[in-house]
Computed example of a mutant assay.
Amino acid sequence: MSGALQTLTYADAIRAGFEYAMARNPKCFAIGQGLWSPWYVGNSMKDLDKRFGKERVIDTPVSELATTGAAVGAALNGYHPIVVHPRMDFMILAADQIVNQAAKWRHMLGGKVSPTVTIRAIINRGGEQGAQHSQALHSWYAHIPGIRVLMPATAADARDMLIAAAQSPDPVMYIDDRWCYELTEDLPPAADVDVRSIAPIVRRSGRDVTIAAASFSLALALGAAEKLAEEGIDAEVIDVRQINPLEPALIIESAARTGRFVAVDGGWSTCGLAGELIACVAESVPPAKLRAPLLRVTLPAAPAPTSAPLEKLYYPTSETVAHRVRSLFA
Rank of each mutant, 00 (worst) to 15 (best):
E276T: 11
R106L: 02
P303L: 07
P300Y: 02
Y10H: 01
N244P: 02
W179A: 15
S37L: 11
T9G: 03
F18K: 06
E64H: 13
R159I: 02
S63W: 04
A229P: 01
G266F: 05
A274Y: 10
G127N: 14
L150Q: 03
D59K: 02
R324G: 03
D59S: 09
P286Y: 04
E236W: 12
L328T: 07
P169Y: 05
S318N: 10
L162K: 01
S44F: 05
D89Q: 07
F29M: 11
Y141G: 06
L150S: 11
V193T: 09
T184K: 12
T258S: 07
A136G: 05
R125G: 06
L109A: 06
I92H: 12
D170Q: 14
R296L: 07
M88D: 15
V297Q: 00
R56M: 05
N244C: 02
K227P: 06
L5F: 11
I82Y: 13
D12F: 04
P86V: 09
V149G: 01
L76A: 07
Y315I: 00
F329M: 10
P309T: 00
E64A: 09
M22W: 13
S254V: 12
T116K: 15
S217D: 09
D12A: 14
I82R: 11
L294D: 08
E276I: 09
I238V: 08
A94S: 15
N43T: 13
G146Y: 07
Q132C: 11
I211S: 03
A166H: 00
Y20P: 03
I58F: 03
V264N: 01
W268I: 06
I123F: 10
T306G: 10
T68M: 09
R207K: 09
I211L: 08
I278A: 15
R106P: 13
A256F: 01
A142D: 13
A166D: 00
V297K: 08
L35M: 10
R296D: 11
P303W: 06
A102I: 00
D49I: 07
R15Q: 00
L310H: 14
A94C: 10
N25C: 15
H323Q: 09
G126C: 01
V264D: 09
I31Q: 12
I201T: 15
R87Q: 09
K54N: 12
A165G: 06
I243Q: 05
A221G: 11
L35Y: 13
V62Q: 01
A158Y: 06
M22K: 14
L218M: 11
A225P: 00
T320L: 05
R24P: 12
